[in-house]
Simulated scan of single mutants.
Amino acid sequence: MTNERRVLVHPNRAALAASVAARFITTAVDLLHEQGDLNVVLTGGSVAVEVLEAVNASAARDTIDWEQVAFWWGDERWVPKNHPERNELQARTALLDHIEIPAGNIHPFAASDEGLDLDEAAASYAAELESHSIEGTALPRFDVTFLGVGPDGHVASLFPHQAGIRENAASVIAVRSSPKPPAERLSLTRPALNSSRCIWMVLAGPDKASALGLALAGASRDEVPVAGIKGRRYTNFFVDREAAAEVPENLTASSF
């Protein structure tokens, strides 16, 4: 099966968020029609929140049958349940609290105040993933996985030169030495992310240009973790012009 890697450039951050939201709604409707249900992996970060806010604001929001959609997370900060920097809380505020979706369709990582230690929380999420897995795997069928990319090229909580990006056996890891606070986090691993049908990376700003350029130029995944992320069918980089500054023109396309 052919894997396509595409860079779609948008004129600015606002256009980027609106365009990705519109494409997500269309893709969700199409996949639900095709297969009846949908598994979406969410990420953190300000641009990701803006995309979810744009989905929520869209007049087409409820063309999606949200009862057939399940949400997972690519990573989470090890903070209390109601901490403002928790990815789950940001996603709920932006979108999830505004749609008709069964509570059981939302699968957050455990929080630091829920009675588990970090390793237990990683094991618990791996078990939850496996309980919803497709035959022959330890994972659900991830259809669309959203990811941000840090200025250092990290994705989820897989950072350069750390063991997490090299983990090949586990689906979930505990992270204790994140160079970006907080130091403790939970994250899906590279093989878990790469099991996704489609990976959508959403980047904005000049501080992302170097990491994106290096990843597309063939940097090692240990140096630039995003270079090791690739969906089974599609890997799309949705970027604004500033983030695309170091991408060769032959790899880019205008926004749709």
Rank of each mutant, 00 (worst) to 15 (best):
E4L: 09
R5D: 02
R5A: 05
L8E: 14
L8Y: 09
L8M: 14
N12W: 02
R13S: 10
A17T: 15
A17D: 11
S19W: 08
R23I: 01
T26W: 01
A28K: 08
D30L: 12
D30E: 15
D37N: 12
L38H: 08
V41G: 00
L42N: 04
T43G: 06
T43Y: 05
S46G: 04
S46Q: 13
V47F: 01
A48H: 06
V51F: 07
V51K: 12
E53G: 12
V55H: 09
A59P: 15
I64G: 14
D65F: 07
D65S: 11
Q68C: 07
V69Y: 02
V69R: 06
F71R: 03
W78H: 03
P80N: 03
K81Y: 05
R86D: 07
E88L: 07
R92C: 00
A94T: 01
A94I: 05
A94K: 08
I99W: 00
I106V: 15
P108A: 00
F109E: 03
F109Y: 15
A110F: 10
A110I: 00
A110D: 06
S112M: 09
S112T: 14
D113N: 06
E114A: 04
D117I: 05
A121Y: 07
A122M: 03
Y125D: 07
E128S: 14
E130P: 03
S133D: 02
I134M: 08
G136L: 03
G136D: 00
T137K: 11
A138C: 06
A138Q: 05
R141T: 09
R141P: 13
T145E: 04
F146A: 05
F146M: 06
L147W: 11
V149P: 00
G150C: 05
P151N: 07
D152S: 08
H154I: 00
S157K: 00
Q162V: 05
I165G: 04
R166A: 15
A170I: 04
A170F: 06
I173D: 01
A174W: 02
S177T: 08
S177W: 09
S178C: 01
S178D: 09
S178G: 00
K180T: 03
K180E: 01
P182W: 08
E184C: 11
T189W: 07
R190S: 11
R190L: 07
A192Q: 02
N194A: 07
C198V: 10
I199H: 05
W200Y: 12
M201C: 04
A204I: 02
P206W: 02
D207I: 02
D207K: 10
L214K: 10
A217R: 06
G218E: 14
S220M: 13
R221L: 12
V226R: 02
A227W: 06
G228D: 08
I229E: 02
K230G: 08
K230I: 10
R232Q: 11
R232V: 03
F237R: 05
F238T: 02
F238I: 01
F238N: 01
F238W: 15
D240A: 07
E242Q: 15
E242A: 15
A244Q: 12
A244G: 14
P248T: 13
N250C: 12
T252V: 14
S255R: 08
